[in-house]
Protein backbone atom coordinates (compact mmCIF):
# COMPACT_ATOMS: atom_id res chain seq x y z
CA UNK A 1 0.00 0.00 0.00
CA UNK A 2 1.44 3.43 -0.89
CA UNK A 3 0.36 4.94 2.46
CA UNK A 4 2.99 4.29 5.10
CA UNK A 5 2.28 4.71 8.81
CA UNK A 6 4.95 6.43 10.84
CA UNK A 7 3.28 5.80 14.17
CA UNK A 8 6.33 3.95 15.50
CA UNK A 9 8.59 6.93 14.59
CA UNK A 10 6.29 9.44 16.30
CA UNK A 11 6.00 7.17 19.33
CA UNK A 12 9.78 6.83 19.51
CA UNK A 13 10.18 10.63 19.31
CA UNK A 14 7.70 11.04 22.19
CA UNK A 15 9.34 8.14 24.05
CA UNK A 16 5.97 6.54 24.44
CA UNK A 17 5.08 2.86 24.18
CA UNK A 18 2.13 1.47 22.23
CA UNK A 19 0.61 0.21 25.48
CA UNK A 20 0.79 3.67 26.99
CA UNK A 21 -0.83 5.24 23.94
CA UNK A 22 -3.49 2.56 24.01
CA UNK A 23 -4.34 3.36 27.62
CA UNK A 24 -4.38 7.11 26.98
CA UNK A 25 -6.59 7.12 23.88
CA UNK A 26 -8.75 4.14 24.81
CA UNK A 27 -8.01 2.08 21.70
CA UNK A 28 -7.06 -1.57 22.08
CA UNK A 29 -3.41 -2.55 21.53
CA UNK A 30 -4.58 -5.00 18.87
CA UNK A 31 -6.09 -2.17 16.83
CA UNK A 32 -3.08 0.10 17.33
CA UNK A 33 -0.83 -2.76 16.24
CA UNK A 34 -2.87 -3.13 13.04
CA UNK A 35 -2.39 0.61 12.44
CA UNK A 36 1.33 0.47 13.24
CA UNK A 37 2.02 -2.53 11.04
CA UNK A 38 0.27 -0.92 8.07
CA UNK A 39 -2.45 -3.59 7.87
CA UNK A 40 -5.26 -1.10 8.54
CA UNK A 41 -7.57 -0.39 5.61
CA UNK A 42 -9.06 2.80 7.03
CA UNK A 43 -8.94 5.11 10.04
CA UNK A 44 -11.81 7.07 11.50
CA UNK A 45 -11.41 10.83 11.92
CA UNK A 46 -12.33 10.41 15.60
CA UNK A 47 -9.48 7.90 16.10
CA UNK A 48 -7.07 10.16 14.22
CA UNK A 49 -8.14 13.09 16.37
CA UNK A 50 -7.52 11.12 19.57
CA UNK A 51 -4.07 9.96 18.47
CA UNK A 52 -3.00 13.39 17.17
CA UNK A 53 -4.26 15.02 20.35
CA UNK A 54 -2.33 12.60 22.55
CA UNK A 55 0.87 12.64 20.50
CA UNK A 56 0.64 16.39 19.81
CA UNK A 57 1.24 15.93 16.12
CA UNK A 58 -0.44 16.46 12.76
CA UNK A 59 -2.04 13.67 10.68
CA UNK A 60 0.75 14.26 8.15
CA UNK A 61 3.30 13.25 10.77
CA UNK A 62 1.61 9.89 11.18
CA UNK A 63 1.17 9.03 7.51
CA UNK A 64 3.28 9.32 4.41
CA UNK A 65 2.44 8.74 0.77
CA UNK A 66 5.02 6.82 -1.26
CA UNK A 67 4.49 6.59 -4.99
CA UNK A 68 5.41 2.95 -5.62
CA UNK A 69 5.15 3.22 -9.40
CA UNK A 70 7.51 6.19 -9.55
CA UNK A 71 9.94 4.42 -7.23
CA UNK A 72 9.83 1.28 -9.34
CA UNK A 73 10.70 3.29 -12.49
CA UNK A 74 13.71 4.83 -10.75
Amino acid sequence: MPIITNLDVVLAKRKMSLTELSERVGITIANLSILKSGKARAIRFSTLELICNELECQPGDLFEFVNEEANAEV
Binding site: N31, I34, L35, K39, A40, R41, T47
Partner: peptide, 8 residues
Protein backbone atom coordinates in the same frame (compact mmCIF):
# COMPACT_ATOMS: atom_id res chain seq x y z
CA UNK B 1 -16.47 -7.28 6.80
CA UNK B 2 -12.68 -7.32 6.46
CA UNK B 3 -12.73 -3.57 5.80
CA UNK B 4 -14.87 -3.07 8.86
CA UNK B 5 -12.56 -5.25 10.94
CA UNK B 6 -9.45 -3.36 9.78
CA UNK B 7 -10.92 0.10 10.29
CA UNK B 8 -9.38 1.66 13.38
Amino acid sequence: REDQKLTI
